[in-house]
Design a protein around this nucleic acid. Structure first.
Lengths: 183, 183
DNA sequence: CACCTTAAAGCGAATTTCTTGCGTCTGTGC
DNA sequence: GCACAGACGCAAGAAATTCGCTTTAAGGTG
C-alpha cells in the first residue's frame, strides 16, 4: 500500500493482490513465523525474485499486509455523548491492539518500514476514528478536545504500554485515560 | 542482556562480549543494514553457528545490542526544581530518541524481542530516570507526580510520535508535555 | 488498430546465509 | 583433581537471496 502505486489496473496490481492474499492465507494456515518468501511466492503463483524486487524482503511485505489489517473496519459506536463514545472506543481500541494478533500486526507494521509511512498510516487510522467521534460531539453541541490531544493522552499511552510494558493492561486503564483527559 | 546470564565469568561471557563489540563496530563501519550473522561472527572470531545457537537470529542479537545502547549513561541534570528538571530531561530524552540512530535502536529493540523483555528494559530505564528526578524533588519538599503518570503523559507521547509520526518533533513539544502534566 | 516504449515479471545460475549433527573443549561442582 | 554439563568449532546440506538476461503486458502514439 505504501510503495507501489504504479499501473493501478494492470499486472502489477494483480501480483500485489495475489501476494497479499497469499500472505494472509498462509499466515492463517502455517502461522506467522513459518512464512518465507519462497513459500508465499509459490502460493501467489509468482517467482520469489518478484517478491524480492517489489518488497525488498519479507519484513517489508509483512509490514504492508499488517497495515491493511490494522485498518478499522467499523465506525466508532454512538453512545449518545462524547465521554461514552470516547471511553467505548478507547476500550475497544485497547482490546484489539493488545490481543496477541494485534500486537503482532503492530510490530510487523513498524518492522519493515524504513520511512515510517506504514506506521504513519496506523496513526492516521486512529486519528480518523477520533475525528468521527469529535464531529459527532460537535453536532450535539459538545466541546471535544483536539485530535492531537486525544492521540497524546489516550492513544499514545495505550500503544506505549502495548509495545513496552505488555503486563497489566485492562479495559479500566483505557477508561481511566479517557476520564483523565476529559476531566 | 535478556537471555544469557550463564556462566558469568567464563567463555560464554567472552563470546557475548566479542559478538556485541563486533556488532557495534561493524554497524559503524558498514552500516546497520549491511550487517549479517556471518559477517559479525567473523569479526568476533566465532563461528556463525555459535551466534545462531545463542541468539537465534540477527534480529534478536540486534535487539540485545540496541537495549545496551539505549541505557542512559548519565543521571538527569539537576536544575534546582522539579519543573526544570523534568523539562530538561524530557527534552534530552526526545532529542536522543528521535535521532536517526535513536529511532533505529528503538526499532531494533522492539524487533527481535519475543517475550518483550528488551522493550520492557527500555521502559525501565526511563522509569529509573524519572524516579531519580522524583526523589530529588521529594528531598526539596516538592510534590511530584507518580512515575506512571510521567510515563503516560510524557514518555508515551514522545515514543508514540517517534514511532508512528516521525514528522514535526521539536524540543518545544517535550516541554509542552511536561508543562501540561504539571499544570 | 498496429506499433513502440518501458516497467515489471519470469527464469535459472551463482552466491550467501541458515540449519544441524557430532566431536571437542572449557568452566563448575564435588 | 575428576566427572558432568553446557557451549563452541567444524563441516555438510538445505534454504534463502541476489543477479543478469529474457519475455510479457500495459499505456501511449500515429
Amino acid at each position: 500500500m505504501s510503495r507501489q502505486m504504479v499501473r493501478p489496473g494492470g499486472r502489477s496490481a494483480r501480483v500485489q493482490e495475489a501476494v497479499h492474499t497469499a500472505v494472509k492465507e498462509l499466515a492463517a494456515e502455517v502461522g506467522r513465523d513459518a512464512l518465507t518468501v519462497p513459500l508465499i511466492a509459490q502460493r501467489a503463483g509468482v517467482t520469489p525474485s518478484t517478491v524480492y524486487r517489489r518488497w525488498g524482503d519479507l519484513q517489508v511485505l509483512l509490514s504492508d499486509v499488517a497495515v491493511e489489517r490494522l485498518r478499522p473496519d467499523t465506525e466508532p459506536e454512538d453512545h449518545g455523548d462524547l465521554a461514552s463514545d470516547m471511553a467505548a472506543w478507547a476500550e475497544q481500541f485497547l482490546d484489539e491492539m493488545s490481543s496477541p494478533s494485534g500486537r503482532a500486526y503492530i510490530r510487523d507494521a513498524l518492522l519493515g518500514d524504513p520511512d515510517g509511512n506504514n506506521a504513519g498510516q496506523c496513526s492516521t487510522y486512529a486519528a480518523e476514528q477520533v475525528e468521527t467521534i469529535r464531529i459527532r460531539a460537535a453536532e450535539r453541541g459538545e466541546d471535544a478536545p483536539d485530535t492531537e490531544t486525544v492521540l497524546d493522552h489516550v492513544v499514545a499511552p495505550i500503544m506505549y504500554r502495548i509495545l513496552f510494558r505488555p503486563q497489566g493492561l485492562s479495559p479500566a486503564y483505557a477508561r481511566r485515560l479517557v476520564a483523565d483527559m476529559l476531566g
